[in-house]
Simulated scan of single mutants.
Amino acid sequence: MANLQFDLVSPERRLASVEASEVQIPGSDGDMTAMADHAPTITTLRPGVLRVTHGGGSDEYVVFGGFAEITADSVSVLAEQALPKSEVTQEIYDRMVEEAKEAYGKAKEVFKNEPGPVDDAAKLLSDMVAIGGHIGLDPKQSNFG
């Protein structure tokens, strides 16, 4: 089976550079799996879990924003923020959810009759809560308040 080069970079550090058989990407318009000979694509990322499968198994990263560029032989992800799943503690996750909740509250305040930005902020908060469930952390969010 053909492989592709996978690179994941955040502003803080390079998180991965491996030869992979597939990369599952949380795209803004829907999740996608990139494999060798994929059609060239650029997609923005939504908060979610990115999974890369390689010869040594698979690794998961929690990503927040950014974009992915897919070519026939590579996937490059430039994330606004990214951490290996194993580094996302309850404390870090709680802080991220709180930031998303604050952004949602601010959007409701600033954009009173403009649903687009408020909907975007609500979607961000929803995605953040979903990440917690996926990686086994407690979102502590019964509603969007």
Rank of each mutant, 00 (worst) to 15 (best):
V110R: 08
R95L: 09
F111K: 02
K106I: 06
E91N: 07
K108P: 02
A103S: 11
V110P: 01
E114T: 06
K123D: 12
K101H: 12
Y104C: 00
A122E: 06
E99K: 15
D119H: 01
K112H: 04
N113R: 13
E99H: 10
K108T: 01
M96Q: 14
A103D: 07
A121S: 03
V118F: 10
V97K: 00
G116S: 08
K112Q: 06
Y93K: 04
A121H: 01
A121Y: 06
E91I: 11
K108N: 04
L125Q: 01
G116T: 10
E98R: 15
L124N: 08
R95N: 14
V110G: 08
L124I: 05
Y104P: 06
E109F: 15
L125T: 06
R95A: 14
K123M: 12
E98G: 13
I92H: 10
A122Q: 07
K108V: 04
E102M: 14
E114A: 07
Y93V: 09
A103N: 07
E99Y: 11
G105D: 06
D94T: 03
D120F: 06
V97G: 02
E102F: 13
E102I: 15
E99N: 12
I92V: 14
E98Q: 15
A122K: 04
I92S: 01
D94P: 03
D120I: 10
K123H: 08
G116F: 12
P117I: 04
V97N: 00
E91C: 02
Y104E: 02
V118E: 05
E99Q: 11
K108Y: 11
E98N: 15
E99V: 09
P115Y: 11
V110A: 12
S126C: 12
G105I: 07
L124Q: 09
G105W: 14
A107V: 01
K108W: 11
K108G: 00
K101P: 03
K101M: 13
R95C: 09
Y104W: 14
Y93A: 04
E99L: 14
F111I: 00
D119Y: 02
Y93D: 03
K101Y: 12
A122L: 12
P115E: 05
E91P: 03
M96V: 12
V118Y: 12
E99R: 13
K112Y: 04
Y93R: 04
F111E: 08
E99S: 08
R95M: 09
D94V: 01
K112V: 07
A122N: 00
G105V: 04
L124K: 06
A121F: 03
P115N: 02
G116K: 10
P115L: 10
V110L: 15
E114S: 05
A100Y: 11
S126H: 13
G105E: 11
R95V: 09
V118K: 07
E109P: 00
A122G: 01
L125W: 15
A100R: 01
V110S: 07
A122F: 09
